[in-house]
Design a binder for these strands. Structure first.
Lengths: 193, 193
DNA sequence: ATAATTATATACCATACAGTCCATTACGAG
DNA sequence: CTCGTAATGGACTGTATGGTATATAATTAT
């Protein structure tokens, strides 16, 4: 009934995500996107809308494909504590192994756009809440397990951990020094006890 | 011997700092700066150089006039622990009282430019190191005072605290909720003991 | 007052930008 | 095979961008 797309929208969106991750929103031009995505300009607008919409889609994809699976793995781990350690460990391994120092697209977007783009702000705020809630659940499980002492508020501990994670992401943009990052993760884990 | 400037370079630089703080680097045009600073375009270039140089100068000024004095106050406090509490308290008060949710210019700049502007990266990395060193000094003093138990590595604790601070700054861009921020600060302070 | 020097106003430049239009091409249902 | 539909190439638009040039105005040492 109609000509079919010469590109895979999923792949193209992933490329857009990666470019925004590397360069940020403002520093990325539509021309940059056209080249990186390998999609014709008109097709890009027809498929994804304007630059802002495309960014929002790329951010949603980042949350769904990068952040959420890591949290899934954290929750699924048989040992709650090991799950948390694994989360921090993966984060550090990624940061230390990324010569481009992209950091985290969500944190980058928060710093660049929060307060100036309501939709992006809402998206990121929701993600931050999800992170906290899920961390609190895992911490509560660790307390129930006896892996962590009881009596401390899991929500407060989760908030601290979420802040440390954001802090690690900022730090890894400036000095992705594995040893220092691991020291932070260890001290943070100790703070849960 | 020559005509004198019709503007105060210090005041103008402060205005530039505030605009970059509000909008970020890429989202701020030279025209925006011309208007906000109240300086003629040619005078702006003659006095401060190009946009990148001006941003670097504004960032240096931010570090010198916003960040450094807070750290001074932290170190000077008679009680080391109260100094640290004061630091976190001021940070939270600022975040909670800023309807524009500007966050921290240094963190914003790190997320937007680190890895793509070597000079800015070096500047921010240096500031991060200064923060850690000075926090470690205060923590060591608290340990020596008996305000904190001895035996824990002040550098590791300082690194954790610095990460929490960066995390608070990110969080305050999304949800500058005073109670939640205070809960994080309290839990972080507890982690020092 | 004059001359040397620096600041200012304003026009200007080339380029980059986000977004659109249209002619052409390919697909697939009938 | 044909026709309706949608995708594509690529030129195009108006505007915004960072940065400069030039002419004029103000300052002060002499």
């Amino acid at each position: 009934m109609a000509r079919s797309k010469a590109f895979d929208p999923d792949v193209a969106l992933r490329k857009a995500m990666q470019l925004f991750w590397r360069q940020g929103y403002e520093a990325t031009s539509v021309d940059d996107l056209v080249h990186a995505m390998g999609v014709n300009r008109a097709s890009l607008y027809a498929t994804f809308g304007d630059k802002r919409t495309l960014f929002r889609l790329a951010l949603e994809r980042y949350i769904a494909t990068v952040l959420a699976p890591r949290l899934d793995a954290t929750e699924i781990a048989s040992s709650a504590l090991a799950g948390l350690r694994g989360l921090l460990g993966e984060l550090i391994a990624f940061a230390a192994g990324d010569p481009q120092r992209r950091g985290c697209l969500a944190v980058n977007a928060a710093c660049e756009l929060a307060g100036r783009d309501p939709e992006v702000t809402a998206l990121l705020k929701g993600q931050a809440e999800t992170l906290e809630t899920r961390l609190a659940r895992v911490i509560a499980r660790a307390q129930a397990n006896g892996e962590l002492p009881r009596g401390r508020d899991p929500t407060a501990l989760a908030r601290l951990l979420a802040s440390v994670i954001d802090g690690l992401r900022v730090r890894s943009k400036l000095a992705p020094d594995r040893a220092a990052l691991e020291s932070i993760a260890e001290t943070a884990m100790a703070a849960l006890g």
